[in-house]
Design a binder for these strands. Structure first.
Length: 433
RNA sequence: GGGUCGGUGUCCGAGUGGUUAAAGGAGGCGGUCUGUAAAAUCGUCGGUGCAAGCCUACACAAGUUCAAAUCUUGUCCGGCCCA
């Protein structure tokens, strides 16, 4: 993967079309389209995609597939991976991915709650951030066919006159079509002027790199279409806009995001992933199979039909499939075994956080107040919460319910504290106890 | 610039001087049930403390009062109308 802030990096993208495997290489255009279409929310317009694929195959020139990202630390969870995996498919078909890091769009965006302007990143910092992205994205993408660019490269060079000219290509009414703007406006919520410039800036990215396809989440519909419009306006062949649905999080309601805590990170430990995936609702299974795994759709239909497959088994299969993608088959099987042991045989997990009981917290008799211990062990956010958990019967020590909220515990190394259904910690007594 | 309305706990939203750590809903957490699913159901949700209690909290600050989320003034932020 190359990281470059120079204009020349675009030109290096003209190597010949290559395919990683015979099977993919031999796909007809229609088969390729079927593959690409899996799980998509929308492709605008589908006919253009076909035309571009045909042209690319004929000329032996890979398509430029664009994805714009915030310069904030990427939280690569399954939801984000949905888009990345689609990009990977394009790469497997021989095309080239251009990741655009919106360092400049982030700079001009000064959210109203923020009092200080974000400091301008130095080129060293920018390069360093780029490297971080490379490492993280490489978990899904093919590094050979990925280019990382920063949009300060071209947005930073725009003069005010040029910006005004660009802004003249779009009307307020057009921008206000965007659902979130329209909603906020009608609800009487504030919209800052600079926010209206966002779609324009993002659209200009597409012009700058001559994108053939722009990928994005469903929520990016408007921005991506603006790119298409602006390209047309400026005499370029307009990009195809390919939108992926937003993956619903573990709660089954809201989109998966780190801040909502309803996510599965792709770097999470296999056992943790397994547990989280088993907790999703049955209704979510088909979507997760379609968007997060490579299981062929006919198989998915059998797996998600409760008459042919027990939902529990299907869900375990789902968890194994996903874990295999990021940790390999062996880890997936191990996570499955562990899950069985803990939840079916009600044994304690093999691995769990260890908590060293501090010597000061232990009294002369070697006892600790359990509420304090729970807080120290990160099993409860506050002692009030710890008390509640105990009162409600959510805490057990070595399998025995601990019911006294004010109770003291005689600490022995190796004791297992369990809170709720799946939070465990193993105690390590202070030396000498 | 003028007028006007508003800023309450994770979110929404009641509350116009005192049994208000603040109704109700959403959501979270725990128990039961289950397939660690969903649904259902019971309980619980500021901090600290074994407890009595103490502390902090209704944008921010100052004030009136025995007593303020509630009244006054100023500041900040926002909506709407007018210019």
């Amino acid at each position: 993967m190359s990281v470059s802030t120079t204009q020349s990096s675009i030109s290096h993208s003209s190597h010949t079309l290559s395919s990683p495997s015979q099977t993919i290489g031999s796909l007809t255009i229609d088969q390729q389209i079927e593959m690409i279409a899996r799980g998509t929310f929308d492709i605008v317009p589908k006919a253009d995609l076909k035309a571009k694929l045909l042209k690319s195959a004929k000329d032996g020139k890979p398509l430029q597939i664009k994805l714009g990202l915030d310069p904030t630390a990427p939280d690569i969870h399954l939801g984000f991976a949905v888009v990345l995996r689609k990009l990977r498919q394009f790469q497997d078909l021989g095309h080239e991915v251009v990741i655009i890091i919106g360092d400049y769009t982030a700079l001009i965006g000064d959210p109203s709650g923020r009092s200080t302007t974000r400091p301008m990143l130095s080129s060293e910092e920018i390069a360093a951030n780029g490297q971080t992205y490379v490492t993280q994205l490489a978990k899904v993408l093919d590094a050979e066919k990925t280019i990382v660019r920063f949009n300060s490269e071209w947005l930073g060079k725009l003069s005010f006159a040029e910006l005004v000219n660009l802004a003249s290509k779009m009307t307020v009414a057009q921008v206000m079509q965007r659902e979130d703007f329209a909603n906020r406006f009608s609800l009487g919520q504030p919209i800052s002027l600079h926010e209206l410039l966002y779609p324009l800036a993002q659209a200009y990215d597409s012009v700058a790199i001559r994108a053939d396809v722009e990928m994005g989440g469903q929520d990016q519909t408007f921005n991506n279409l603006a790119g298409r419009a602006l390209q047309k306006e400026l005499g370029q062949e307009p990009q195809v806009v390919l939108l992926m649905p937003l993956l619903v999080g573990l709660d089954g309601v809201k989109k998966m995001s780190k801040s909502l805590g309803n996510y599965v990170g792709i770097s999470e430990a296999p056992a943790a992933m397994f547990g989280k995936l088993m907790s999703i609702s049955d209704e979510l299974m088909p979507t997760y199979f379609e968007l997060c795994t490579d299981v062929p759709m006919p198989d998915v239909r059998i797996l998600t039909d409760a008459d042919s497959t027990h939902p529990r088994e299907a869900k375990k299969r789902l968890a194994r499939e996903i874990i295999t993608l990021y940790h390999g088959t062996a880890a997936a099987q191990a996570a499955d075994d562990e899950f069985e042991r803990v939840h079916k045989e009600h044994q304690v997990p093999e691995e769990m956080p260890e908590v060293v009981v501090s010597a000061e917290s232990v009294d002369a008799d070697g006892q600790v107040r359990l509420t304090a211990l729970l807080v120290a062990a990160n099993l409860a956010p506050s002692s009030g919460e710890a008390k509640r958990l105990i009162q409600q019967g959510g805490v057990s020590v070595d399998g025995t319910k601990f019911a006294d909220p004010a109770g003291m515990l005689l600490v022995r190394s190796g004791q297992v504290i369990k809170v709720g259904k799946n939070r465990f910690a193993r105690l390590v007594a202070p030396t000498g106890v």
